[in-house]
Write a protein that binds this DNA or RNA. Structure first.
Length: 647
RNA sequence: GCUGGUGUAGCACAGUCGGUAGUGCAGCUGAUUCGUAAUCAGCAGGUCGUGUGUUCGAGUCACAUCACCAGCUCCA
């Protein structure tokens, strides 16, 4: 008999030579039915793998990410099998599971169309119905190369060539289809009950734009049809929240062909929200000891040559003039604020008593993103961020880093986004310094060691991102996922031990020695345009009262109530509320509908009754009719709701 | 930048085989004075993204270009 250690610490006895599937059955038949894979001593394996005596054993079901990955990975093989049956000339590249589904990359003469996807789906249905068993076999590297050639799969050959000489490679066969694959997989194709191919796009082989563009098919799959339907419904819902659609519909922003890509126009509503956020952040930073700066939007190339941006970031900058003509000055729009704000520090000699110096600026930046990269308000060519630089003595680093993190968490929590954020410790790639990074390995290791210690001391739950650092130092990136699950950085806090030296920044220490300070680069709410986009998506356009562009709409029944409506508006104007009167000659139902579609937080309906009683009939966009409330009472409540920044 | 898709009134869309552009909402005007998600009638609104070409004739076909969308790559 073999003994397996279960998650709760108890022991499970199974017969010698039993598979993981049999072990799962021994726990419970129900669990065995739900099983997609297993884990032995923390390593994911398939259900057919033999159990090992003394190993920690875990059954993977749909509830675990690893279980879902196995399911989706096999789904991608079903896709590949269907494609090979219908298009034998298609060459296989790679086909992994991803967050909410899977994809497979093919090299084909002509890219697949939407109509092709239907045919492929039909073929996949057949394969699922055939319930084809998957079997694993291994080959030596040389045998695997021969196999790849025999199958006529040049991309597989390339993958194998990159593996070490003594590697043993696994292949999976399912009926008429065989693929080089690390696995693990489901026992057979029959359990992939519900799937859908979602889109077909281009993707470079190995993600390198110098390589050939392949044809990628995205799909998703679930063990139950109802789960697939739910997922597709959620995708539809996400489309309705998409800031790029909703933000245009609700008139937060627009784009104009003549102005150009990545240069959105913020319409009055969008501009108002950004102004509100910006004032709030500037005030909050003032409370926290930040000094406000305002620095130029462009500079001569000389400045960027010192900072290193000219070497590392020239492609991303808008350059005015001809860089190759040395007889004339050449300017560039700024892609970041660092070297500008450093000049504030450099304005006079500094002492250790001046530190920490916290500099904050609402800073507009210009980055020449590639033309295919722009996206609504999330990726643009001109944007404004809550930029800041903290100049520090080394012993102040941890305390100040903590302060930056607290500020970022406070503002993200207040706008309601913190719950959807994850933290990434972005490091350099020691294997590939590649001119991408400044400084020595010693400097990088030191900066990353310190940052790692700080993060651990602060109990930050982070993931490590290799090759995600800035060229001058490691970062803590706060990542936010949009409604489609696409992730972007919203806030960043960076430690920089290099640029102070380049710019000749120093301070006189207690012992009268000149020392280079440490610098933290950070944002508190990140880029305002991007934040606005996320807020529109998060709240489906119904922004919380405190940041809603129009907070209150007064709806008089007719002209008789106009005077009274104006007096109510005056009271609200007086306490800084953003109020409009809908004096149109329309029914009250029509005006309510139109305010509701505009997602106005409160509607104040005024008829003869309210006018006589000195009240307003309040309707909340969420809760509906709240009944008549004395005007002064409503004003006081509204002021309180805004002051508390209620979500 | 690359692959694929899209582009007709402010918005959502229709427009057949190439024969000279329509519907709904929004807007404007008038009537209606109405109690919590659409009152009725009338009017106005388009160089069919832009340019070039094919044709007797182009929203429709071809090429180029711009913008938008999905994805790749990139991202301080």
């Amino acid at each position: 008999m073999l003994k397996l250690v279960l998650k709760d610490g108890s022991l499970l006895e199974v017969e010698e030579g039993a598979s993981c599937m049999e072990a799962a059955k021994a726990i419970s038949p129900g669990l065995a039915r739900a099983a997609l894979g297993a884990k032995l001593d923390g390593e994911v394996c398939e259900l057919s793998a033999p159990a090992r005596d003394g190993a920690a054993f875990e059954v993977l079901t749909w509830e675990s990410e690893e279980g879902r990955k196995i399911f989706r990975h096999t789904s991608s093989h079903v896709l590949a099998q269907a494609v090979k049956r219908l298009y034998p000339a298609a060459k296989l590249a790679i086909g992994p599971a991803i967050d909410n589904g899977f994809y497979y990359d093919f090299d084909v003469e002509t890219p697949f169309t939407a109509a092709d996807l239907e045919k492929i789906e039909a073929e996949m249905k057949k394969i699922v119905k055939e319930d084809v068993a998957l079997s694993r076999f291994t080959l030596s590297r040389d045998e695997a190369l021969a196999k790849a050639d025999a199958m006529g799969e040049p991309y597989k050959r390339e993958l194998i060539e990159d593996l070490p000489e003594d590697a043993e490679l696994s292949f999976y066969s399912q009926g008429d289809f065989t693929d080089l694959c690390a696995g693990p997989h489901l026992p057979s194709t029959g359990s992939i009950k519900a799937f859908k191919l979602l889109s077909v796009t281009g993707a470079y082989w190995r993600g390198d734009e110098k390589n050939k563009m392949l044809c990628r098919i995205y799909g998703t799959s679930f063990p139950k049809a109802s789960m697939l339907e739910e997922h597709l419904a959620a995708l539809e819902d996400a489309k309705k929240r998409d800031h790029n659609k909703l933000g245009r519909e609700l008139e937060y922003f627009t784009t104009v062909d003549e102005i150009g890509q990545g240069l959105p126009i913020l319409l009055p509503k969008g501009a108002r929200v950004i102004q509100l956020l910006q004032r709030w952040i500037e005030d909050e930073e003032q409370k926290r000891g930040y000094l406000l700066t305002k620095t130029p939007l462009m500079a001569k190339s000389d400045l960027y040559k010192i900072s290193g941006h000219w070497d590392h970031y020239l492609d991303g900058m808008f350059v005015l003039g001809d860089p190759s003509d040395e007889s004339k000055e050449c300017f560039a729009m700024r892609p970041m604020t660092c070297p500008f704000q450093y000049q504030v520090y450099l304005n006079r000699a500094r002492s250790y008593r001046d530190l920490p110096m916290r500099l904050g600026e609402t800073s507009t930046l210009f980055r020449n993103e590639e033309s295919g990269e722009m996206h609504g308000l999330i990726r643009v060519r001109q944007f404004t961020i809550s930029e800041g630089h903290l100049v520090l003595r080394p012993e102040q680093l941890e305390e100040e880093f903590k302060g930056c993190l607290e500020l970022a968490k406070y503002v993200l929590d207040t706008v309601g986004m913190l719950e959807d954020c994850t933290f990434r410790f972005s490091q350099w790639d020691p294997a590939n310094p590649n001119n991408k990074y400044e400084g020595t390995a010693e400097q990088w290791n030191e900066a990353q060691r310190i940052m790692g210690e700080i993060l651990d001391n602060l109990g930050v739950n982070y993931q490590i991102g290799i090759d995600e650092a800035a060229f001058y130092g490691p970062k803590l990136d706060i990542q936010y996922k949009n409604v489609f699950g696409k992730e972007d950085t919203i806030v960043t806090i960076q430690i920089d031990m290099l640029l102070a030296e380049k710019f000749g920044m120093e301070y006189t220490d207690r012992d009268d020695k000149k020392v280079h300070p440490y610098i933290i680069h950070r944002t508190s709410l990140g880029c305002y345009e991007r934040t606005l986009a996320y807020l529109i998506e998060k709240y489906a356009g119904a922004l919380p009262m405190w940041m809603a562009p129009t907070q209150i709409k007064i709806l008089p029944f007719g002209p008789e109530q106009m005077e009274y409506a104006k007096s109510v508006k005056a009271k609200l104007d007086n306490v800084g509320m953003r109020v409009e009167i809908d004096g149109r000659n329309e029914t009250i139902g029509y005006k309510i509908r139109s305010a509701q579609l505009e997602k106005i937080p409160y509607m104040l309906i005024i008829g003869d009754k309210e006018m006589q009683d000195g009240t307003v009939a309040v309707r909340s966009r969420k809760a509906g009719d709240l009944g008549a409330i004395p005007v002064d009472q409503f004003v006081a409540d509204a002021v309180m709701e805004v002051a508390e920044k209620r979500k």
